[in-house]
Structure formats: C-alpha cells, structure tokens
Design a protein around this nucleic acid. Structure first.
Lengths: 88, 88
DNA sequence: TCAGATTTGTTCGTATGTATT
DNA sequence: CAATACATACGAACAAATCTG
C-alpha cells in the first residue's frame, strides 16, 4: 500500500530513519531539555509502546539505543533511569 | 470440523488462536456450565500456569481476558472471582 | 508490629514466527 | 536475503496487597 494513515504521533513511518531511532531521539531530547531529570525513571517499554503506537520490542530497541548512548541505565524488573549528570 | 479456532479441551500451541484466548475460553465455559460458581475464586495465575503448562503471564492474560468480558472480578493480593449473577 | 506465605501487578530479558520493505 | 516491525510466549526479578500466625 502506498497509502499510509496519518501518523497519530511524532513518529513518521515514512522516514528512512527507523522508528526505534526516532523514538530514542525524542526521549534523548526530553533528557537534554530536563523534561526527564537525572535519576528519574523514563516511561516503561509498555508505556512507550502505547504512547507512540509501536510494538513493545520497538520501544525496547529505543531504550537500548539510549543505553548505548549512556543516557539511561536499565534495571531488570524495575525500569530505565536517566543517567545522573555527576555520574553517580 | 477441521476448524479449531475455539478448542474446548487442552491447549493447542499450533492453533492460530493464541494460548491465552484458548485458556480464557476454557475457563469461560467452566463458568457458563456452573463448574465455577458465582462469587467463587478461579484458580490463581500460578495454579493455571501449572495446570495448563503455560507461563504465568500467559495465564494472567487469560484472566485479564475474562475481566474484559465481565466474567470475573480481580482483587490484588487475593484473586479473581466469578462475577455474581446479580451483577455485583 | 512483625515475619512469612500467597496472590496479583509491573517491568525488563529473551526467543520464535510472520509480514513488510 | 537483510533490516525493520509486530504479536505471541516464556523467563526472571521486583513490587504491593492480603491473610495468617
């Protein structure tokens, strides 16, 4: 289908940039702007999936991307937290 | 019938119908038949998981499906109970 | 009040299968 | 075929509520 429904959120399925990268960028900006403060949890994978209309695994990849960039630390069974600016 | 979309017995992992739907159907039938009476608790998530050889989360999804159908009410820390016929 | 067991609630970790591009 | 994306499913850990002793 060349037709594509209008994106319900800020994510653009037409973009050459993968959805999980787009989502990671959005969260990264929120961290940079202070909207998501150090030591505070970011939304859960399920929450992000619901919010942005993607699968949980896609939300998960976004979180992993943020980990690769050192922006968050993840704790199994708890969640992902914004990396403290002072490093601990 | 070659159709197996609504199995009445054991769970069929090969079926196109998800396991949690299959399990929900089984319990729903037990409620309809009176095998599980109103106001009585249904088996716990762990119990269902053991009984039917599925993961706890899969048993949990079945229970949530029953909640969506209004067949049971769930109380945290206690269990899920068959919805009373009088609608309570 | 406290400790322990049971049960539901939540979250991350991982794997498989299918569909689309 | 490869990368991306989604649905389902199992596993592990943590959390909160309930009940018993």
């Amino acid at each position: 289908m060349s037709d594509n429904s209008t994106p319900t959120g800020p994510l653009d399925a037409q973009s050459a940039t993968p959805l999980y990268i787009q989502l990671a960028e959005i969260i990264a900006k929120q961290i940079a702007s202070g909207s998501l403060a150090p030591d505070r949890p970011i939304p859960s994978e399920n929450r992000l999936a619901e919010e942005y209309g993607v699968a949980r695994l896609t939300a998960r990849r976004a979180t992993q991307e943020l980990r690769d960039r050192g922006l968050v630390v993840t704790v199994r069974g708890k969640g992902s937290y914004v990396t403290p600016a002072n490093g601990g």
